[in-house]
Nucleic acid binder design. Structure first.
Lengths: 212, 212
DNA sequence: TTTGTTATATAACAAACGATATGTCAAGGG
DNA sequence: CCCTTGACATATCGTTTGTTATATAACAAA
């Protein structure tokens, strides 16, 4: 009897609409009216699928985390070599295209707001821990015996976060060159990581091969 | 004839009050009424010193940048050794005490809002460039001849930003251990920076003057 | 004391917000 | 054909916001 629609499809439509508003106009601009308008409907439709504004925003953040996590797992699965896999995942994490740039701006907006909101800070903390654990497994076979895997992984994660923030805030004019520098930065970090284990045995190979 | 007050002192009082509100309750909570109450006055006093809410916030951001910059310059001036100076400045940049933690949370809040506001993004961009230029001058004597100074500096700045974000968002329970890891992370980064220049060329043995 | 000027409190107001209630239309089973 | 049910638009309420206007208090000079 009821008029039938795809609930999941509607919800993701609103999620995507809220991503666009947040990334382009900031989290404050993501009002119920504004998000509904961006999705081409009115607030009546939006409140039909999300009880609260906060529920919408938390789900938007969660969905962004999930999408990014899925992409990174896919990037990791393609490669066999440990160092190449690490590099591929780190590159996948950076905002090197517009979709990922939007994602980073969404995260950035939520980070600022996470201070005052318990639900947001918990969701953020969850993502941070997952991302760090994943990085540790990737880094494990590459870390030299004398060093702490946790510290090495934390350093790489922090490097990605810092580069991501920088790219997310970069003006459009300098975005291309900043992206180039960011890729060179993580290439250097991964190369110097190997230099103390494998490359030291092979001696002098990566000096001209990968340096930028 | 006029009733005389110290204008600069009043303005900084409001700036400091807004820092506290932003760091503890988020940027959205930093309304005129809330900031005025945190400063112990009403909105009438606040609007007497700042034309806009935006003017107050921009000045709060600018003042936070200025305070941090002054601290880092002071940290740099104390030391002569290049590597020690770099490490000291990087440690000074991290949120290792409550005052700096508050500062980082203020920045984080503004980063999220900078997307939608031209004035905020410009002020942010200014600070990012100054910080990068400063890092380049510190890194210059330590970077090996084959590598790009800009990339090395960018890597270190990104590392600091990533660690700072992580610490700014860390729950109070794990803050102490996270701070320890962060210090280990930058110590490792600075040490590995020297390892590729002086140590590699001089065979890692005899370094009386400039050793780690 | 008087007077003029500034600092601050108080009050008012329109705009925008989240939330909710109500109305309307579409779709299918009886 | 009717009637139920869900999807959605529209309208409204109470609250909070930034901003502005007005009133009061403080204070220095005349």
């Amino acid at each position: 009897m009821p008029r039938v629609v795809d609930h999941a499809e509607r919800r993701t439509k609103f999620i995507v609409a809220s991503w666009g508003v947040i990334a382009n106009e900031g989290l404050n601009a993501a009002t119920l009216r504004r998000v509904a308008a961006a999705a081409g409907v009115t607030t009546g439709a939006l409140t039909h699928y999300f009880t609260d504004r906060e529920a919408l925003l938390v789900e938007a953040l969660r969905a962004a985390h999930f999408a990014a996590g899925a992409r990174m797992l896919r990037a990791a699965g393609k490669l066999d070599d440990d160092r190449k896999r690490l590099l591929a995942v780190l590159e996948e994490a950076l905002p090197l295209d517009n979709r990922r740039l939007q994602e980073w701006r969404v995260w950035l907006a939520f980070w600022g707001e996470a201070v005052g909101s318990l639900a947001l800070s918990e969701e953020n903390q969850r993502r941070i821990e997952e991302w760090r654990d994943f990085a540790e497994t990737l880094v494990l076979p590459l870390v030299p015996p004398g060093q702490s895997t946790a510290v090495v992984a934390m350093s790489l994660v922090a490097l990605i976060d810092g580069l991501g923030v920088r790219l997310a805030l970069a003006p459009a004019a300098s975005l291309a060159s900043e992206r180039r520098d960011a890729r060179a930065s993580i290439a250097r970090a991964v190369a110097s990581l190997g230099a103390e284990t494998t490359a030291e045995r092979k001696a002098t190979q990566n000096q001209g091969g990968k340096g930028v």
